[in-house]
Nucleic acid binder design. Structure first.
Length: 597
RNA sequence: GUCUCGGUAGCUCAGCUGGAUAGAGCAACGGCCUUCUAAGCCGUAGGUCCAGGGUUCGAAUCCCUGCCGGGAUACCA
């Protein structure tokens, strides 16, 4: 139980005792006391003056008196206007420090047999082009969300649905067949996903040329787009694929395998993984079955052209198509099928989709449709909706070549990290291999933290020139602080200083030390809050505050030279606990921390 | 048109279940490396919280209206 909870309960008691009123706990507004005032926790007493029928100051004093007398943790209090500032006893803070120090994963709740099973879908790439910046945000958010859910005691299944069928992959296949000269990742030396992406672009280029040529011959734009040989070829391939034509399926398999091999490299570099991968090519037919069942049961209806629709006007929405007039599936149909499969495969208590906010409507509808089809899990779906990554020139568009490629970006950042590190003369004495691991850790720390520190719901701007920084509120800043703490602890060990981790002395605790202990004590609160709000950004924010606090502390105290043994021990234990908290917190963001940098 | 999300310092972002004088980082300017890592620390400067109205002891935060921007909106995924 956190100190806020303890105090909160006692305030309800205080009100009952002083004013003979039963109040809702939600009326108790506690906040961390602002630095310019004495105290740790502040109660806003304005809501209670109505009950006391006294001035805010007097009310605050009465509640303060009660708390001071009846709550061991409350040492004293002061009143400023309508604010009751409570001073928590240092013995309480010491007990928190001891708890945090002794616990291997302070703030982390382990799952039990009765824990909820949460399935999280993230990444969900198309197999026709490499991963880009938008996918990076998705992957990092998805992975971090899973870590945070686990830290809150949930069992988590990480899943990925690969959009491996459809006209888009046929375009790449067609282009490769027409203009590829049989090149493969091996013969060309190009990473598989990039190679397939190259032919996706090639298709578009040739297609545009064909349209232009047809329009010169007097065709309308629409006709030209429909009848260009490239488009007809791609469509023919899709038909052949659906008819299971062996040659087409073979080519499809081959090219998809190239892409998967490429994705695996990118995922590994990003540090994300999955427990179960679904393929759209395997699940898209199930959805059709479900829609037809819905039609038979009268949940959906059919138009004269034989397309199938859902009427969502009772829900305040529109009509939604579920099967095209030619009987083929749309996106929604596939998601219905995939959902059914998942709930058959796992005893899922909650399903979370990490998908961009441009699909808010889609998931709203999906939830309703599943519910209509009689799946009890329909209403419980959660769409973890995140904002787009924008570039200074606007939205990323693959056709305009403004896409920031995931592999390129990571490679560039590793290079910058290496250069910076060498210029600063760090990592001397490291082998080239050790140094390379650290460069990568720093580069990815910068990228991940940059993406995760902003509120997931909001669109964010990525400026390739300026965005990635290694100073200030960044991953490397946090990693750096961690590395320095580790260095201090190494040096202490070198000098034969043994830590007594069981702190009993309550005598001398400086303000800065106390602030750090308080900051550490907030970690479980931050983890819980991040879980409740699905927000890695809250964890990132917390760590940043902790690290800033530590840097001031670090600057102020010469820990190793300190003469007073007790104080030195306390400071080293605090430092060690901070480093553990940083490491644990960063793990929730999927960011590694180096011992040295 | 309708629905939805957003607008906070020059830039990128916190703060938003109403609470004390709206905070960081970057960029700018000025200090601090003979003492545990200067990827750091300290300081200066920078604000009509889009605008207007409402609710109340109190509004960046809640409600309404308007302006600006993003997204979605019946056979793309």
């Amino acid at each position: 139980m956190s100190i806020e909870q303890i105090i909160s309960v006692q305030i309800v008691e205080a009100i009952a005792h002083c004013y003979n009123q039963q109040i809702e706990p939600s009326l108790v507004q506690l906040q961390i006391t602002r630095k310019e005032f004495e105290g740790d926790i502040t109660l806003v007493v304005f809501p209670f003056v109505r009950m006391s029928k006294k001035s805010p100051e007097q009310t605050a004093a009465e509640i303060g008196d009660y708390l001071q007398q009846n709550v061991a943790e409350v040492e004293k209090y002061n009143v400023v206007k309508g604010f009751l500032n409570l001073v928590i006893s240092s013995s309480y803070w010491i007990s928190v420090l001891n708890l945090a120090t002794a616990h291997p994963h302070f703030g982390i709740t382990e799952p039990t047999d009765s824990s909820k099973l949460v399935m999280v879908e993230y990444s969900s790439p198309n197999t026709n082009k490499p991963l880009h910046l938008g996918h990076i945000r998705n992957n990092l958010l998805g992975f971090s969300l899973c870590e945070i859910l686990k830290a809150n005691g949930n069992k988590v299944v990480k899943t990925n649905i690969v959009n491996d069928r459809g006209i888009h992959i046929c375009k790449s296949m067609y282009a490769w067949k027409m203009w590829g000269n049989g090149e493969t990742p091996e013969t060309s030396g190009i990473k598989g996903d990039h190679l397939v992406g190259k032919y996706y672009v090639k298709f578009d280029q040739e297609y545009k040329k064909e349209i232009a040529a047809l329009m010169e011959q007097g065709e309308t734009k629409e006709n030209a787009e429909q009848n260009a040989p490239a488009m007809m070829g791609a469509r023919e391939m899709l038909l052949k694929w659906e008819a299971k034509d062996p040659e087409t399926v073979e080519l499809w398999k081959t090219m998809n395998d190239w892409v998967y091999a490429g994705f695996d490299v990118t995922y590994k570099e990003l540090g994300v993984d999955f427990d179960k991968i679904y393929y759209e090519s395997e699940t898209y037919l199930y959805g059709k079955d479900e829609v037809l069942r819905g039609l038979a049961e009268g949940v959906f209806y059919q138009k004269e052209d034989s397309s199938v629709w859902a009427d969502l006007t009772p829900e305040g929405l529109d009509q939604k198509i579920l099967l095209r007039s030619d009987g083929t599936s749309v996106y929604m149909t596939q998601d219905i099928g995939t959902a059914r499969e998942r709930f058959q495969d796992y005893p899922i208590d909650q399903m979370i989709y990490v998908v961009g906010n441009e699909q808010n409507y889609h998931f709203q509808v999906l939830s309703i449709l599943l519910d209509k089809l009689g799946f009890e899990f329909g209403k419980g779906l959660h769409h973890f909706s995140y904002g787009m990554v924008e570039l200074p020139q606007g939205k990323m568009k693959s056709r305009e070549g403004t896409v920031v490629d995931a592999d390129d970006l990571m490679a560039e950042m590793i290079e910058v990290s290496r250069k910076t590190s060498e210029e600063l003369g760090k990592l001397e004495g490291y082998t080239p291999e050790q140094a390379a691991i650290t460069y990568k850790m720093i580069a990815l720390g910068a990228l991940k933290y940059f993406m995760l520190k902003v509120d997931p719901k909001k669109n964010m701007l990525f400026n390739p020139e300026e965005s990635i920084d290694f100073n200030g509120n960044t991953g490397p800043f946090i990693q750096y602080t961690y590395a320095r703490i580790r260095s201090v602890l190494r040096k202490a060990a070198d000098r034969g200083i043994e830590l007594n981790r069981d702190i009993t002395a309550t005598a001398e605790i400086a303000t800065k030390e106390l602030q750090l202990i308080k900051a550490i004590s907030q970690f479980p609160v931050a983890v819980k809050e991040a879980g409740d709000n699905y927000s890695p950004a809250l964890v990132a924010n917390y760590i940043y505050e902790l690290v800033k606090e530590f840097n001031q502390f670090y600057h102020e105290f010469p820990m190793l030279i300190e003469e007073n043994i007790d104080t030195r021990n306390l400071r080293l234990v605090i430092a060690e606990t901070v480093s553990k908290t940083i490491k644990t917190g960063m793990k929730l963001l999927g960011i590694d921390v180096p011992e040295r940098m």
